Amino acid sequence: MALAGATTFIVVNAIAGFAVFLIAASSNDTTVAKVLLALTAVVSAASAFGGGWLLIRRKRPMPKGFGMGLMIGWSLVTVCTAGLCTAINPELYTSMFGMAR
């Protein structure tokens, strides 16, 4: 179930993250793009760790494994993409998409 949770997070994050990056890149206002990316980072982490924590608390093996998988999936995506796909990379907020400091 941990593998299923990690895979689920990776697939959902890829679809949602792609949509968010398209919207942020097409925005003319850098403040809106930065807020959208920050909101994405918070929602991504909250869904993985909040949802994972709630599933782990159920004390049954299948939900517990899936919850751990969500957390593992977030960690793998963050490490393997240097934080780009979970929106925690500081480069997203400074120079990417033409956003100047």
Rank of each mutant, 00 (worst) to 15 (best):
S47T: 04
L54V: 04
P61S: 13
F9K: 00
F66W: 08
A4W: 09
T86H: 07
K59V: 08
V43H: 02
G52Y: 02
V79A: 13
A24Q: 07
L70P: 00
K64A: 15
M71A: 12
K34W: 03
F18N: 15
C80S: 15
L39F: 09
A24L: 09
L84K: 06
R57K: 14
G73H: 03
F18P: 06
R57N: 14
L84Q: 09
A87V: 00
M71F: 12
F49P: 01
D29T: 02
I15N: 08
M68N: 09
T86L: 09
S26P: 05
V20M: 10
L92D: 01
V20E: 09
G50Y: 07
G83T: 02
G5F: 02
M96T: 08
C85W: 05
N89W: 03
C80Y: 15
M71N: 07
T94E: 15
G17I: 03
A16S: 06
W53E: 06
I88Y: 03
A87W: 00
N13M: 11
V12F: 08
N89A: 05
T31R: 07
L22E: 13
F18H: 15
P61W: 14
I88F: 04
A100D: 12
R58F: 15
L84R: 07
S26K: 13
T86M: 12
A41R: 02
F21E: 12
T31P: 06
D29W: 07
A46K: 04
M96K: 10
F66M: 06
S75V: 05
T7I: 08
R57C: 12
G69S: 08
F49I: 04
I56P: 02
I56D: 10
T30V: 13
W74D: 04
A87I: 00
A19K: 08
S27E: 13
T78L: 11
L54K: 01
F97A: 09
W53H: 05
K59M: 13
T81F: 12
A100K: 07
F49K: 03
G73A: 08
A100S: 12
A2M: 10
N28W: 15
T30W: 14
M62E: 14
I15C: 10
A38T: 03
G83P: 00
L36A: 04
I10W: 08
A45P: 00
P90V: 10
A82G: 11
V11D: 10
A82D: 14
I23L: 09
S95I: 06
M96N: 10
L36G: 02
A6N: 06
M71V: 06
V42Q: 01
P90D: 15
G67S: 08
F18V: 11
G98F: 09
F66C: 07
A41I: 01
A41D: 03
E91L: 13
M99H: 07
L92M: 07
R101L: 08
I88H: 03
G83S: 07
N13C: 11
G52M: 01
E91R: 08
T86V: 09
T94Q: 15
I88A: 02
M62P: 13
L55S: 07
S95Q: 11
I88V: 05
R101Y: 08
F9I: 01
A33M: 02
W53C: 03
G65D: 05
I88M: 05
L36R: 00
